[in-house]
Nucleic acid binder design. Sequence first.
RNA 1: GCCCGGGUGGUGAAAUGGUAGACACGAGGGACUUAAAAUCCCUUGGUCCGUAAGGGCUGUGCGGGUUCAAGUCCCGCCCCGGGCACCA
Length: 1156
Amino acid sequence: MAYEHNEIEKKWRAEWAKRGTYRVENDASRPKYYVLDMFPYPSGAGLHVGHPLGYIASDIVARYKRHSGFNVLHPMGYDSFGLPAEQYAIQTGQHPAKTTEVNVARYREQLDNIGFSFDWSREVRTSDPSFYKWTQWIFLQLFDSWYDHEAQKAKPIHTLVVRFGHQGWHHADACALTGDVEEELGAFSADEWKAYDERTKQRILQHFRLAYLSEAWVNWCPALGTVLANDEVKDGVSERGGHPVERKRMPQWSMRITAYAQRLLSGLDTLDWSESIKEAQRNWIGRSEGALVRFKVKSNLTPNPSPEERGTAHFDQDESDSGAISRFRETANPFIWSKLVAHAKEMRHNPTEAENKLWQAIRGNATSGRIRRQHIIDKYIVDFVSLRKQLVIEVDGDIHDLQIEEDALRTLALGEKGFKVIRFRNEEVLSDVSEVKRRIQAELDSRPDFSASADDKTEEEYSSPLPGRGVGGEAIEVFTTRPDTLFGVTFVTLAPEHELVEVITPANRRDEVMAYVTMAKNRSERERMTEVKRVSGVFTGATCIHPFTGQEVPVWVGDYVLGGYGTGAVMAVPGGDQRDWNFATHFNLPIIAVTEGADISKEADERKDATICSEGFLKGLKVPDAIKRAIDELEKRGAGERRINFRLRDAAFGRQRYWGEPIPIYYKDDVPYALPESELPLKLPEVDKFLPTEDGEPPLARAANWNYQGHPLETTTMPGWAGSSWYFLRYMDPKNEGRFASPEAINYWQQVDLYVGGSEHATGHLLYFRFWTKFLHDRGWINFDEPAKKLVNQGMIQGVSRFIFFMGVAINYPDVDNNTVVKLQEEMRRFPVVLVPESLYTQASRLKPTDVPMVRSFLNQMQQLRLERDPNAVGVITSQTLAKTHVDVSFVNPVTGELDISTYKKFVGNTQDVVVLSDGPLICPSEVEKMSKSKLNVVNPDDIISKYGADTLRLYEMFLGPLEQSKPWDTNGIEGTFRFLRKFWNLFHGHGDAFGVTDDAPTKPELKILHATLKKITEDIEKMSFNTSVAQFMIAANELGALKCNKRAVLEPLVIALAPFAPHIAEELWEKLGHTDSVTGAKWPQWDAQHLVEDSFSYPISFNGKTRLQLEFPIGLSKEEVEAQVLANPEVQAKLGGQPPKKVIVVPKRIVNIVV
RNA sequence: GCCCGGGUGGUGAAAUGGUAGACACGAGGGACUUAAAAUCCCUUGGUCCGUAAGGGCUGUGCGGGUUCAAGUCCCGCCCCGGGCACCA
């Protein structure tokens, strides 16, 4: 009876579905094992042979664990929200839900074909409201939490509110929080907190919530129309699609993953994950220890253009300044407010002509609502403002043209504080001030009233965005890992984005500095990376004070300092840091040697085992001691403190996209509030188009009634990683309507025991996955704080691409009229595809195609043919470029590399003919590349299965090599595993005969084969070394075949051992062996060492380590006996040639080595 | 530049410091067959000697070292893949 894989596999797939063989119950009486595959995104392209690699491996482990008595959870589902379905929707109008449905169905069909033991009753999809209800619920928990760094855990936000009511907020607490927002938050007392109104309180709390809304620098991808997380950007372009990405500041939902930086780092040590993934995460988190150092700024500050610069006209002014200044405190950035006040005063005394004219028109009660002028908001001095309506009116002179970007930033910053900005040009005001006034009035009327009463005091409270930090001197904060080199500081460098740049730059340097800043900011990330070596920068004109020496140190701006890392400023130690050295050398700044033995004329000395030699109290100390001493001294002087810095940034969470989970937030007075739990799931609304609105709002803004009790709902959606950060919990209890999973289910299943997936998720999914798990643990929802104990990364299966070379053919025509050109082009379009051999292409640099006789005669022929058809044909046929392109691998003989020209012709179709200019067959060279549709090298598992069966595919994928390793797919080799299955089948069937096994007692050699195989397979599965287990099965089949063994006692255990690898054939043979239950439930056969014991061992006899002959001795022989017998052997004696051996080493049951 | 992997026949690969190349593909030769498919048997790292049986030398990226013995351990390089990166 032949091995009919198609029938067998079809039969058992149906049978498994019917019997519910893989259904799993939460049976607490049995030990559990949780095997999980990384969540697939159901793409339209379907699966190729590379995708199932990990699934097969995890399926083998799952089935093996079942045989070993475990209750195994092995689920599958879909990460079904995502960009591709949405892009497709934008192009075709097809609803992403529909596309997703189709793709999921195809995935399911393909997965089913491979015979996985997934419990499909537990399937989950992230785009299913019953699933994303809980994603939204977890988001609300994050929104409702803050991170207590003393307790090192997340706590409910109300505990923070209580704490504020008791002890307020001291700025000293700020070092406990990381992320980029907290720094702006000033201290307040308990009484102040109690006095704040609701809006202010809410805005303060945003600085602590783990899911929060803030103005942040984001990776904006214009092509995708959305914000991307850091891990979604590679080399300055989007990971998906490769579109350029720019830095942009905008309001943005973020996740405070930075709060967990230390725990995410330390937790790695407890995990059985590959070293490379752990290392990638360590790099990504990027912890560095060092110190924060403050350099006090010494400079005469003019934060805005001076009156002269603005082209001031002197007009009389009448407003008394008394009282006005104190009001600034309310809206001003307290950090720099004293400088701003002085400047505002100056500007008020020196208005421009246009400013003065407008002021005369709108002052007093001329408009509804009082207008102030030259008012300080944050760090800006605005021309005019209505605090009550939060409307800023700016009058721009020519200078505006020079700093459009600056002003845009200013508008954004003011917007963040709740102010709308409208602008008028000088000429508009001067030519028709009443029209300007009318427009201002219209704006005022359309704005809501931000104060309950017109009372000034209340008004100002409302306009105060946040409580101030308190008045203090300006200081540049730098982070350094080498405080020991402080005495080597010769200058300080700020990043171009640093907010102090424009504050500290004196007027006479302003133009130059701002020009540099604008230039540096506009340089894209890409340029900055490719021009790493180029040094650029500018002196600000300001200086600061060295905290130890008290000397003045110049402040520079340089783009080698990154705005996003540390404090965006460095203390430059050119003697100890190569980048500082490069900068100092380029601009001729002084360089001080900081370490003994350094040659600072050539390069900086970055050694960390040196001795400090710069003058000062650190001189003579070793680096580590000097670091300690320096920090102690900084703390003593209040000039700095010990600081641990992380590279990890908070994760951008909002996406300006449709196909994702809606964020369950509504806005009241522009303040975000959590949607009540009872409103979940907040379902994705229907929209007319999946595009942004005309105003650039995300697609959800198109939805009708997108509000909650009249309050607008959030319009951005969650990123792809939201659902995948917790899905492993849902599988434990997928139908639960009252909780994301019941405590019983979570307690039973616990962590994932084995997680299998690609290493490309190292810094994205795997970090968020751990973050959410830790958070849920902190809040008491789960009792473990790492999601997966063991992680295995399967390697990529690469494709073998094939290439063809073709020659462009065109008509070389003289000057002719347009009509003729059109006709000629028409004719050219019908020219054949001309394929040429690789040799012609590689010679192209030395040889013109027309130098090749075959090409020349072909072109001549074509030209003649033309002339026969039309004697008046214009122009001459000529060759053009030679090009290389992918050709579908299915057109190429995989062994010879020969192109099947008739198939290729069919593919090209009837529009064009194909001509091959080659003496012999056309050989297509190959390259190993990523398997992908665009490279035409995709191999579909369905094709393999219909030819060889799923069992063969499963075995072959495992046989290819170690799971973790990447390897190219070569369909040729599959014959070997197919032959093995047939041999295995034939052991039960004689040779092509009916099924027949005997109950005879097995012989010794048969038992030895059986138990050696069981031992190897068991050990290999535990090690996940599947390629060697398949090899062992082959050895067993070959040897048992040679012995013509058809004994039940030998074959039956082997069927069970093979079942995890090739479940279909195993079920069929199991049934034929007389069992009525599934082989899935059979107990794993144990190997017995007694059958592996040998009577004798064939010793390799080596001379100086080189094996020369074999001698067999009984196992029981002692070392000495073996040695004596070996030396007595005539062959050995012959080799020795009469010389006595220097030494003889006998390793029992291994080797004998004779040293001569 | 730093940090992880990895480098073994024509190919995928195997090898607790102990016979390098298991297992499989491919290739070559043979058997069966009218023929093909399928199946089975033999050979297959390189090289040299020999008519043959058989034997010698050499060989795991390169150069050193430790050891009775090194693909495996140590030192120094080269190359490939991946991660991070003007990260202070």
